[in-house]
Design a protein around this nucleic acid. Structure first.
Lengths: 352, 352
DNA sequence: TAATTCTGTGTTTGCGTACACATTTATATG
DNA sequence: CATATAAATGTGTACGCAAACACAGAATTA
């Protein structure tokens, strides 16, 4: 078995010291042209693979990762990423990784700006961010690029950004899958409603992607269903109940597709009014949704797996910073279909 | 920040050398009673947590993991675990992990015995095994226990075994989920067929678990469906086609649940005869199944994620051997529901 | 009594990084 | 030409552990 090549061996071959080799490997300068050439020549020749264990031991560094994410106390959806982050932290703390949170209000773009700025100001080694606001994100990413701070996106993709990686789902396919599940076993024709709840539609392209996917599927398959699209206001407002009541009395309504994690608001109405002829499909395993999934008002939830998204975001940054690994620039998670029966298997299974 | 305690510190306190401390920590003997006492006293006093990075660096060990799995050239289902294993290998090779395969014929219990024996004989540091044969597995596990070789199970659980971990799915819940999906949107009552294809039912409890789950669900929900159970022979036999034809002509047949990865055999028949009123549900993303999932004969596949199972099996052994981590003894993966629309998202997403 | 084995103990090495520090060489200023 | 200054480069070491190695002294055998 051929021994692996050490820095020492390179130094020997190039007739320089280990210190010089180290400086070349890490582009730290203070190397003459002559020495540089010699070392690079040897490096071309042989395939040097540093011992990663020794590397982490030697570089007794600690890494700070800044998190720019919505406040989980405001919307239960954001509790899951927080969990994923804390799981990732326990896994990576042994390599000196630490995280620092910069929370923002998911309905307030100025709050987002503030959080982003604060994160940048803390001068972290890497940033994990859920860029909910398209416009406010762009200048931020420019700054990150300038300062060469690596960053990863999750939840929402911004195509103009050049992150280390985006971790999320294909939203168009997500809408298509919802449509497919909606059609399953439907005998007669009728109407499907697409409902956006409490979203700034103009500034959130991702929601419209889901809608498009849903409609495209029906068109392609020549399904004999009408679709109507409705945007509902804040669930806390008084008018909300009436808006839902009016929606649910639409003649021939066979199903409702809620584009966000707010399906429970409609589930609650269906339960109250004991309607079971409307198929309800929504997103995400938040406790409110699970209640109605179990009792049958919600038929399917598509899991965006935000916990895993955040976990992988940290992992991606850690792999980059620590192991200098090549990172795939886009990581689309599977579209997980959750029903009353397979729910528990998802809740039980951990992130590995 | 208080510095962590090193072996050096213990040696200093106990007035011995680091070598002696190391011998005490690893019970390697060659330590006088006097020195032992002193070191143990210090160890009681302080909470020593070894630096795992330095440990792996120091012990420049290499680990061999033996794989006892069915031959993937015989059944495409077993290609997926092979992939998972090779992915795990690239991840763990840097820590000196190597794998060695001991393949067996999945329909031949003697071949299994031979593979197991050969694996044992190679004296590996750990074993990952898919114990398809209940009876033949038990004595093997006893031997492993005696020789203190850690092992992990995947795919099939053997409750009497005391593995490091079992990685697989809850088969009862799996059957229940299939039943739930079968019932969705079914308006009239009718018959569901449960089909076992080419399985030694007596020796494979796991298949019966799925059947039980399926039936239990229907009972609990008071669904007005009859179920019939059918065991089909080897798909390569001549009579196979007729058996399927006779099955599919069952009056009032609304759905077929195939308990293995062989749903494609029925999908092929349905396509040929252009029957689209029978809902077909099966297991696993093997190419043959995907063809009929895409073209619509198969409505749902439940993914057992064998790739991930094997991957996690290796990971579990590596964590145990390398980091001495506590391993959870059972790791049930989510019951993944795959449709034509969300299929691609599963194929694209990697194991992380 | 000499030769050998065993036992307890301390020392060294290996691994890559990141420093502090020493030494050499090149360039500039007086 | 001497001295100051800077740049280039080498040396040495800590980091933290495991394991090989060295070596003394005691116990055993020939």
């Amino acid at each position: 078995m051929n021994k692996s090549i050490r820095i020492k061996d390179i130094a020997l071959r190039a007739q320089v010291s280990v210190g010089t080799v180290d400086r070349v490997l890490h582009n730290r300068g203070r190397v003459s042209e002559d020495a540089l050439k010699k070392v690079l020549a040897v490096l071309e020749e042989i395939d040097y693979k540093p011992n990663l264990i020794a590397r982490t031991l030697g570089s007794n560094k600690s890494y700070r990762i800044a998190l720019v994410v919505p406040d989980p106390t405001q919307d239960p959806y954001w509790e899951a990423p927080a969990e994923g982050i804390s799981q990732a932290e326990t896994e990576w703390s042994r390599y000196g990784f630490r995280t620092e949170q910069f929370l923002f209000d998911q309905y307030d773009n100025r709050s987002f700006e503030h959080a982003a700025e604060a994160a940048l100001h803390s001068n972290p080694d890497g940033i994990l961010i859920a860029p909910l606001f398209y416009r406010q994100s762009l200048p931020f990413f420019k700054q990150l690029e300038q300062q060469k701070i690596p960053f990863a996106l999750f939840n929402t993709n911004i195509h103009e950004a050049k992150p280390l990686s985006f971790i999320g789902q294909d939203l168009n396919k997500s809408g298509r899958t919802a449509a497919e599940l909606m059609c399953l076993g439907q005998q007669e024709s009728g109407t499907f409603a697409i409902v956006h709840i409490h979203e700034d539609i103009q500034n959130s392209i991702h929601i419209l992607e889901k809608e498009k996917g849903f409609i495209d599927y029906l068109k392609e398959r020549n399904k004999d269903f009408k679709t109507i699209t409705i945007s509902l206001s804040n669930p806390n407002e008084n008018s909300f109940y009436n808006q839902i009541a009016s929606l649910c009395s639409t003649p021939g309504l066979k199903g409702i597709f809620v584009s966000t994690s707010k399906a429970f608001t409609i589930g609650s109405y269906l339960k109250e009014t004991r309607q079971n002829n409307i198929r309800l499909i929504g997103y995400d395993l938040i406790p409110e949704n699970l209640e109605y999934l179990k009792s049958g008002e919600i038929t399917f939830l598509i899991n965006q797996n935000p916990k895993r998204q955040a976990f992988l975001g940290i992992r991606c940054l850690a792999n980059h910073l620590l192991f200098k690994r090549e990172i795939q620039s886009i990581d689309l998670l599977p579209l997980e279909i959750i029903t009353a029966e397979n729910l528990q298997s998802y809740l039980d299974s951990e992130i590995h």
